[in-house]
């Protein structure tokens, strides 16, 4: 089964004629033995042939006639905008004027009020999950498991998201901090990390679906993480330095670790704000989450 997975990934490359002779020969040998893979190959090749019916989209000819002129005009105006010093904006005479610090203070107060409002109303964990947790005490499930572990009560979304980010961070740190030159790499335990990556990718899809448009920032972070996890899951069993470097560069360019930290900070602020609000908040919930 694992062999099939490896070969299937190479099927598109074979269809587009990108496999070297040796690999192609091996693939053909596998296809001769595996009916499922050979069916997949035939279906995919037929699809690629069908796609030739559709030409690459193009704009009408009149669009291209003035393309350079429009681009040049835009470049000139951009350059002029950057070269011009910022003009002094027109300020109408005000009927009354307050000292400058008063505006600053009013702005700060508004931000504070807005923060409290968001914390209390938007970031508060759903009441339902708290009530449910109170209703089922820890250890009530037979076999020494907690109710949450046993899967009888679904964990609230923020808790699962937080748990997911923590696991991803640990995994990414292990991979990006590995050093191929030293024996440190041996402690990477790649099969385990690849398996964990696959699990996390499955979890990511479910999380993204649930988050939807309610938290775009978290959804984007999970999408970015998905890419990194996919790269880890696709690592060869004996990766060279360049594979790890690409993953490292991906983590850095997307500020993945920083964004996870930021999300943790947001979660803890939300938690503490929710803790200020009156209502049943049991310590058992926290223990159960851990």
């Amino acid at each position: 089964m694992k062999r099939c997975r490896t070969w299937r990934k190479n099927i598109p490359a074979a269809i587009y004629g990108e496999l070297d002779a040796k690999t192609r020969e091996k693939l053909e040998r596998h296809l001769a033995l595996c009916e499922e893979c050979s069916g997949l190959y035939a279906g995919m090749a037929a699809t690629v042939r069908k796609l030739d019916v559709r030409p690459a989209p193009d704009a009408p000819p009149q669009f291209w006639e003035g393309y350079w002129d429009r681009l040049e005009r835009r470049m000139v105006s951009e350059a002029e905008r950057k070269a011009l010093p910022a003009a002094e904006p027109f300020r109408p005479r005000r009927a009354f004027s307050a000292p400058r610090w008063a505006y600053g203070a009013a702005g700060a107060l508004m931000f504070l009020a807005l923060g409290i409002f968001i914390g209390r109303n938007l970031l508060r964990p759903p009441e339902q999950s708290i009530v449910v947790t109170r209703a089922v005490p820890l250890g009530a499930v037979p076999g020494g498991q907690t109710a949450l572990d046993a899967g009888t009560i679904p964990r609230p979304l923020p808790v699962r998201a937080s748990h997911y980010l923590k696991r991803s961070r640990v995994l990414i740190l292990a991979v990006v901090n590995s050093n191929l030159q030293t024996e440190d790499f041996l402690s990477l335990s790649l099969p385990l990390q690849k398996k964990t990556s696959e699990e996390l990718m499955i979890e990511a899809a479910a999380l993204k679906k649930e988050i939807g448009s309610s938290d775009r920032r978290l959804e984007r972070l999970i999408s970015d993480l998905e890419l990194i996890l996919l790269q880890i899951a696709n690592l060869k069993s004996d990766p060279d330095g360049s594979d790890i470097e690409i993953i490292k560069a991906g983590v850095e360019s997307r500020d993945i670790l920083f964004k996870i930290k930021l999300n943790e900070a947001r979660s803890s602020i939300a938690k503490s704000t929710a803790g200020l609000a009156p209502g049943p908040r049991s310590d058992s919930l926290d223990r159960a989450i851990v």
């Binding site: 299937r8 996919l230 690592l235 690409i246 560069a249 360019s253």
Partner: peptide, 12 residues
Amino acid sequence: GVTLGTAKSYLF
């Protein structure tokens, strides 16, 4: 900015 294996997976 991805690995070759990832690009293959995306194409598949």
